[in-house]
């Protein structure tokens, strides 16, 4: 553990950089993908274009994107912006598809009833449709965020600092401990982010557990009955 003890401020710094490069694209990607998905739902033209287009986007290798983006954006090759933009594109690719599913899973009868009660379109979207899409939206966000955490490491190859730097550096200098620490922290970050999103989904959807809660109560009552 001598390497870790000597380098922990550097490791902490890299963890922070890793987190920013993975979370920021999830937020930006969600901001792009969710409205786009809503537009695509029930549109005979937009839906196939966007869904197929986003799948195609995902087939571009990440390293290629990291190298090409500076040419398109005019940024430095080692700039964090390249990674953020590239990963945002991947998040859009993953989220668009699952967000379309999320909106399509919302009961149309409920939406019709909302309109019939006098909801205007924007308010209906924000307070009814979005709320009801949360379970599937969160599932998509969890996939995107975990995939991002692992993909950020690739940036290290072109010199963008992240936990991936620990792999490239450890490999070059043959420090096994550095590589192991890099892997372990990546896994921990992925797990923490996933838990956080799961928790967020839980808090936003008390109504989803409404049915099961009564079952739990009944089971508890049964248990008490058996114990007595």
């Amino acid at each position: 553990m001598t390497w870790t003890a000597a380098n922990w401020p550097h490791v902490l710094e890299l963890t922070g950089a890793h987190l920013v490069q993975s979370v920021l694209p999830v937020l930006l990607g969600a901001l792009v993908a969710i409205p786009l998905a809503r537009l695509a739902v029930r549109s005979r033209v937009l839906r196939p274009v966007l869904v197929t287009g986003s799948s195609l986007l995902y087939t571009i290798p990440s390293l290629t994107l990291f190298v090409v983006l500076p040419l398109l954006l005019g940024t430095q090759i080692t700039s964090v912006a390249n990674v953020v933009v590239a990963l945002t594109l991947y998040v859009v690719a993953i989220l668009l598809r699952s967000s379309v599913d999320a909106f399509e899973a919302v009961d149309r009868g409920v939406l019709q009833a909302s309109t019939a009660m006098g909801y205007r379109p924007l308010r209906r979207f924000l307070t009814v449709e979005l709320s009801l899409a949360v379970p599937v939206l969160v599932a998509g966000l969890r996939v995107a965020s975990v995939s991002n955490i692992s993909m950020v490491s690739v940036g290290a190859v072109i010199g963008v600092q992240s936990l991936g730097t620990l792999f490239t550096d450890g490999l070059r200098r043959s420090i096994v401990e550095e590589i192991v620490v890099g892997i372990a922290l990546t896994v921990v970050l992925a797990l923490l982010l996933d838990l956080l999103l799961q928790g967020l989904g839980h808090v936003l959807t008390p109504w989803q557990r409404a049915g099961s809660r009564s079952v739990t109560t009944r089971l508890l009552a049964l248990g008490r009955g058996a114990a007595a």
């Binding site: 009961d107 009868g109 409920v110 019709q112 009833a113 909302s114 019939a116 009814v128 709320s131 009801l132 959807t205 109504w207």
Partner: peptide, 9 residues
């Protein structure tokens, strides 16, 4: 309406 159309959330 039929099936009540209540807001599930």
């Amino acid at each position: 309406m039929q099936q009540s159309g209540l807001l599930p959330h």
